[in-house]
Write a protein that binds this DNA or RNA. Structure first.
Length: 114
DNA sequence: TGGGTGACGAGTC
DNA sequence: CGACTCGCCACCC
């Protein structure tokens, strides 16, 4: 097991389906670090230079776009989500549970044991 | 080398 | 019910 905490985060985030979103805690648990949800967000920050990582599809457990400030603009993140069919109102994802995607149930951890 | 930090989460008041 | 506090742990300075 390398120190590839970030790489794992990227690997999972990259698997988020179009039109779906997940939260930091779910990713953290999936990679085996349930207490490192904060680090997941931190990793997303670095993903700013990684176009392959749909960081806009990752929000906090409330479905709130907490990271939109870091996304370069103010409404860029929300606009991206809306363009994917996700309803967003005032930084809050509407029908969050309907567009929620949990890697712990949709993915196989064995594929991420890198 | 050590200490501060944060795109969070869960528990408490 | 809403707002606040604490813990967490890999990364940066």
């Amino acid at each position: 097991m390398e120190t590839n905490f970030f790489d794992r985060v990227y690997a999972v985030a990259a698997q988020i389906p179009y039109g779906k979103v997940t939260n930091y805690g779910a990713i953290a648990r999936f990679i085996g670090a349930p207490k490192s949800a904060r680090m997941v967000g931190y990793a997303m920050n670095t993903s700013g230079t990684m176009p392959d990582i749909p960081a806009h599809r990752v929000v906090n457990r409330n479905g709130l776009l907490t990271g939109k400030h870091h996304f370069g603009g103010t409404r860029v993140m929300a606009d991206l989500l809306i363009s994917e069919g996700i309803k967003v109102r005032d930084n809050q994802i509407q029908d969050f549970e309907k567009v929620y995607w949990d890697p712990n149930e949709e993915l196989d951890r064995n594929d991420f044991m890198i």
